[in-house]
Write a protein that binds this DNA or RNA. Structure first.
Lengths: 193, 193
DNA sequence: GAAAAAAGAATGAACATTCATTTTTATTAA
DNA sequence: TTAATAAAAATGAATGTTCATTCTTTTTTC
């Protein structure tokens, strides 16, 4: 196999192991040695690809975050109507959070703890720009409530994180109907009425 | 000072230090020695009051959780109407999350990581029972949407956690108007229409 | 003056990171 | 192509530190 590809595979294995271990045990209980073992690599090898543990975790965060937003915006076109665009993005986000729940769970943990350093966190936020732009347009057109983006986010997107979490914990299984109900709630909480 | 009171003060100081350090540095970066120092106590003394670090963190979680729910339900009476009761509880919760944000932040971190052990987490959930009972009543009366409590929670209560978090990070300041808007969103996403 | 609480220092394990060496890969010269 | 060698990657075993917890002694409380 090409050397480059092998390197990439190894980095990916390390990132995957990091996600799985941090999800199951928390950052405080995932030593580099376990990450190495799960990725079938010597602990020393990690330091060829990553500066240190903080760097590994930051890079893992940024990679997952961009997979998330790439997926969310993949089928979105700027010329869509606000309502159509929002529904599309919302449903892609729901899809990601419920299907790629290992990834989504990792993000939730990063977003709710000081485990990621501030520059990486800031970097991660930038990826949501297309949604903010859509909201901006919606506000101008009088379709979206003219309130803070933080409130829009809190009511329309954030609930999905909570639903993903309880679904992952096995307390509850979301089906198509739930998703549709959730979407209606999301849309009605941000649309201008 | 009475011995008992002194003991309680010491435990409280330890719990307060735990919250502050975990909020600022994360569980992975809060050693017992730092907790001890911040509480003006020898590391060994912690083990008089708590079995070990996990026990300290579990007990801290349960204490904060019951402060939270005690506050939330303090002025609620079971004979209130569903709408009145919900508004009251919701606003108390909002109050707590925004005023006691150190506490609320700690809970958010516990709820989004494997830092608390499962029995304590289960124990913590029980405290929300009065709200679930209110929803049950509301569903029977046809006032609250007949959907899973998880969905009701995701849409009406959980957004407050997100708003608390960003407010804590300094990105955004919530005022009276925001709270009122947020309440309207919360209520309209769970009421039967 | 006995019992409980508190302290500081000690212990031993776990851990992130580095070191010295070996293995793999890429490059060059025949 | 093949053999020789240089460069890069990978490794397992150190290293030194940090940390949770315990031990022994001192202080406080009753």
């Amino acid at each position: 196999m090409a050397k480059l590809q092998k390197s990439i595979d190894k980095q990916n294995a390390l990132i995957k192991a990091t996600i799985e271990l941090v999800n199951n045990n928390g950052f405080h209980a995932t030593p580099m040695s376990k990450i190495a073992k799960m990725a079938n690599v010597s602990p020393a090898t990690i330091y060829i690809y990553f500066e240190n543990k903080q760097d590994l975790v930051n890079q893992t965060y940024l990679k997952v975050k961009s997979e998330y937003t790439d997926y969310a915006f993949a089928t979105y076109k700027e010329d869509m109507s606000v309502e159509e665009g929002f529904e599309l993005i919302w449903k892609r986000i729901a899809d990601f959070k419920l299907k790629e729940c290992e990834n989504a769970m990792f993000l939730a943990q990063c977003d709710n703890t000081p485990m990621i350093d501030e520059p990486s966190r800031q970097e991660g936020i930038k990826h949501l720009q297309p949604l903010l732009d859509l909201w901006e347009k919606g506000k101008k057109e009088g379709i979206i409530k003219n309130i803070s983006d933080y409130l829009l986010y809190a009511y329309s997107i954030n609930p999905l994180s909570f639903l993903m979490m309880i679904q992952k914990r096995g307390a509850f299984q979301l089906d198509k109907t739930h998703i549709e109900e959730a979407y209606q709630s999301a849309w009605s909480s941000i649309k201008e009425c």
